[in-house]
Nucleic acid binder design. Structure first.
Length: 491
RNA sequence: GGAGAGAUGGCCGAGCGGCUGAAGGCGGCGGUUUGCUAAACCGUUAUAGGGGCUAAAACUUCUAUCGGGGGUUCGAAUCCCCCUCUCUCCGCCA
């Protein structure tokens, strides 16, 4: 989330940066200034009335204590309250609408980020390693994995459907070895602290890192079986609720004071509307499967004020990642490039604003060192404005060489979010010395690395003429000394 | 799942209808003392938003905030209801 004052004062810059991302500033910002003014006007009005109310209450108190008649003051209070009731809905609507607007503006990309709309405009910063030269035709990992008996996509489809994988034997061990190897390298060599977070998180966490509200369709949701009542919840139109005494699921149309207008939406043969008190509604508790460890790990310090002396905080976490990626149907359907579930080792940093650039470089290097230690050729790419993620100000992708497909493929994405996530998640630090107003930290993260893609990169890059796969030196201790994966007996 | 206890500022902890944005302590910051450090002493120290003033700050004023939401009341940290979370005991369980 951007700072409101900043947007107000730098509207032209914000519009320009939005255009650079390929977004339409008019659609996103609307008439920002008019909206902002209306909102502020409403705030001023209601606050003035509230001030008057507080004033009158004091006076009533004073009168009552001295035993005098306060009925005329009470009459004044009644009038102001009526006035306030009338303004309430307007300012609430404005406030909520404005907050949504602000929350749906993507981060501003840095000036050094190349302007462009697609992958084609990304800038290759460096290239490392020699592509392996084979005197035979390199095979893709799905063929090698199948013939070696270490990857079973057919049976995975039986279990869970498309875009899931079963690893067997040395294949499973390789995945596990990679996780341990990466975590050890980050904790022992790069100075990160290991974290094992929950894989299910609430919507507040998803908001904090920017997945919600815009990208709900990309997430897997888990809804509890039991219905709960939570009248403290703020309802928003479009939300699903249950009404006791009525069959089916209802959708919220609008909120009128303490009442809610709801419409039956499932089952849908015959729909009807109801207006019921908010306090009678039931909800289903909803959790989200994490799409990356970034979500739980960054939100670790949500609503906290950190000591400057603790910064930078460098954390690394292994988690499975779950992505629905509704928009990616038909893309990368072969092999394990794009899965609904994959494993990843993630690096997350919390830094002072002035350090985030240097820490971004270090973090990217830490990911590169994994690739280098494994002997996998890669290149570093600076993403262009249109390819940079919603929350990010600047992103480097690392792309590994895949000989089976003759192309470079993203294996890590290292981003500097600056204060964008910190503002959403309210993560601050107090500077020692200076007059100690808490300031937002900068957050960063990067894959170090995507384990599934590392697995397939090793299989493709280390394949031999006989169809076996050599294990990179650095990984052998994690494989019980195994030097080569050969055809498995059990299939 | 059942029964009970609790949630207050950066931290600890008091308050249980108005004078409480909140005592006291710790920590932080500024100062006095000191050859330096420590100690002692004095002062200061919440966040967000709106208005005023400003080039911008500083400053000033108002509003909100004592886990979250709602209610009672002229007035709520304080009373009532609901939710969330934490702790203790029982049950179940990897």
């Amino acid at each position: 989330m951007l700072d409101l004052g900043f947007v107000r004062g730098n509207l032209e810059l914000v519009e320009e940066k939005l255009r650079a991302r390929g977004a339409d500033p008019a659609a996103l910002l609307g008439d920002f200034l008019t909206f902002d003014q209306a909102r502020r006007k409403a705030i001023t009005n209601t606050e003035k009335a509230k001030a008057r109310l507080n004033q009158l209450s004091q006076e009533v108190g004073a009168l009552k204590r001295t035993g005098l008649d306060a009925s005329s003051k009470m009459e004044d209070i009644r009038k102001v309250k009526e006035e306030l009731d009338g303004m309430g809905m307007v300012s609430l609507a404005l406030e909520l609408g404005f907050r949504d607007l602000l929350a749906s503006i993507p981060n501003l990309t840095r000036d050094e980020v190349p302007v462009g709309l697609s992958e084609a405009d990304n800038l290759t910063v460096k290239t490392w390693g020699e592509k392996p030269a084979f005197d035979f035709e390199a095979k893709p990992h799905w063929e090698l994995g199948k013939s070696l008996g270490i990857l079973d996509l057919e049976r995975a489809a039986k279990l869970s459907g498309a875009r899931f994988a079963v690893y067997m034997g040395a294949g499973a061990r390789l995945e596990r070895a990679l996780i341990s190897f990466m975590l050890d390298m980050h904790t022992e060599k790069h100075g990160y602290t290991e974290v094992l977070p929950p894989f299910l998180v609430n919507s507040k966490s998803m908001f904090g890192t920017g997945q919600l509200p815009k990208f709900e369709d990309d997430l897997f949701k888990v809804e509890g079986s039991g219905l709960e009542q939570d009248i403290s919840r703020n309802l928003s139109p479009g939300e699903f609720v249950f009404v006791p005494g009525h069959e089916g699921m209802f959708v919220v149309k609008r909120v009128i004071g303490s009442d809610v207008e709801v419409q039956l939406c499932k089952p849908k043969e015959s729909t009807y509307q109801l207006t019921v008190p908010k306090s009678t509604l039931l909800y289903q508790r909803k959790l989200y499967l994490i799409p990356t460890a970034e979500v739980p790990v960054t939100n670790l310090y949500r609503d906290e004020i950190l000591d400057e002396a603790r910064l930078p905080i460098c954390l690394t976490a292994y988690t499975p990642c779950f992505r629905a990626e509704a928009g990616a149907a038909g893309k990368d359907t072969r092999g394990i490039i794009r899965q609904h579930q994959f494993q990843k080792v993630e690096m997350v940093k919390f830094t002072r604003p002035e350090d985030s650039d240097a820490e971004h470089e270090k973090l990217t290097r830490n990911a590169e060192e994994i690739l280098e230690t494994l002997g996998l050729p890669y290149r570093r790419v600076l993403l262009c404005t249109g390819d940079t993620g919603f929350s990010s100000a600047k992103t480097f992708d690392l792309e590994v060489w895949l000989p089976g497909q003759q192309l470079y493929r993203e294996i890590s994405s290292c981003s500097n979010f600056e204060s964008f996530q910190a503002r959403r998640a309210n993560i601050r630090y107090r500077a020692a010395g200076a007059k100690g107003k808490p300031e937002f930290v900068h957050t960063l993260n990067g894959s170090g690395l995507a384990v599934g893609r590392t697995w397939l990169a090793i299989v493709e890059n280390y394949q031999q003429a006989d169809g076996s796969v050599l294990i990179p030196e650095a990984l052998r201790p994690y494989m019980g000394g195994l030097e080569r994966i050969t055809k498995s007996e059990v299939q």
